[in-house]
Design a protein around this nucleic acid. Structure first.
Lengths: 215, 215
DNA sequence: TAGATTGTTAATCGATTAACAATC
DNA sequence: TAGATTGTTAATCGATTAACAATC
């Protein structure tokens, strides 16, 4: 069977993560007025190999100019398009406790085209209010309000006990892309795309290295 | 040159991360009263290969019983020792905004032996107060108060602008293991161990897959 | 043109997995 | 003992890096 023109060759996840890092670097370079950059220069900023940078890009096309390198503005635009960061994604934030509030105000999201369009929280003191103009609803209204805003991405920042219930509600509302901050294993169907952010695993690996080093 | 008995063979970082995951699973299994588990059963819970589980463990010793598997309580204790989770690590939390407060209350840390022993924040409204009995100091007192508590690990949850200054203060106080949540690149000496937690990169990779899928 | 840097192939490296003797 | 499962070696796979012809 010939490969559909929609389908790319299998892209390593690490490549996607690096593209995301390159993009941020290019945004900075553009601000600084830098016009071109070579794969060598770009690689050095992250301790990577220049061939790796070129190979990461080669999965998606030819963006450079031999003898010159890459035009910063052009490459930035290409990568934003590839990563889907050239448009606005309305996002639902579920849970407005400390973590939810921190994520709400997190600069990195909005800078890359993610816009928190609605907040869900079951605290009666919060329902019906808004944060910076973004309305807060109870999860009972999740499907209706998420659909009204054509939301495809949710950020989950609720207590572990509530996480599965909210997830089921999100799936029922047709939201299949979930970034989960609750430290719990969620059951989702195969076609859903769930990414768990584990806040404590990094600390545990740090303690390993600390424990290895006799003081 | 014979390998020093202190030095382990080079351990892949992914192995350390998986050990951390196994440990949490074993804690749960122990709570559930499960006495033994095979590499096969353990692997299935995370979609891994049983040989990988055995190999991860083999870096550190022989913990299983042929024909039986692993005794849950024994393996848990071994892994906790390896990861340095068998003791209490006093931790400094720097920055008590929304994110800092969320991390302060995060259950995962304390469950694994990390105890936030002191908080630093330069908000005059917070200095001199405490959270759940943990004192809050200004960063001017960082070196003195961190040393008094023999702190070796810091969690950084301050705004990006403040992150480098705080980092320098931490290093000056002899704290060389830092978990950084500020979305900024920190300069640290070679012997420091810095781990950056990037809250937005996961969202960006999710948007890549979403952008690939024509609706 | 000469120098620089890309895009790509081939070589290398390291991590994952299969297979199986050892042994509970 | 027979069955099960480990610890470990060998095979496989995939990602990284080196090398270089193509070309600006």
């Amino acid at each position: 069977m010939p490969r559909s023109s929609y389908r790319l060759p299998k892209i390593p996840e690490m490549t996607i993560r690096r593209l995301s890092v390159y993009t941020r670097c290019l945004l900075q370079l553009e601000e600084d007025g830098v016009e071109t950059i070579s794969s060598q220069e770009l690689a050095e900023r992250f301790g990577l190999n220049s061939a790796q940078v070129r190979k990461d890009l080669a999965y998606f096309g030819e963006f450079g100019v031999r003898g010159i390198g890459y035009y910063v503005t052009k490459l930035k635009a290409e990568l934003q398009r590839i990563l889907g960061l050239d448009r606005e994604w309305p996002v639902a934030l579920v849970g407005l406790g400390n973590l939810g509030a921190a994520l709400f105000h997190y600069k990195g999201f909005s800078r890359q085209g993610f816009r928190i369009a609605v907040v869900f929280d079951d605290d009666p003191a919060k329902i019906g209010r808004d944060v910076d103009g973004v309305p807060i609803f109870g999860t009972a209204d999740l499907a209706r309000e998420a659909r009204a805003r054509e939301i495809q991405i949710a950020i989950l920042a609720v207590p572990s006990e509530a996480a599965q219930g909210v997830t089921d509600a999100l799936l029922a509302a047709g939201i299949k892309t979930i970034l989960n901050f609750a430290p719990t294993r969620l059951r989702v169907p195969k076609d859903a795309r769930l990414k768990n952010v584990d806040l404590s695993i990094e600390l545990e690996t740090l303690s390993f290295y600390l424990a290895q080093t006799p003081r």
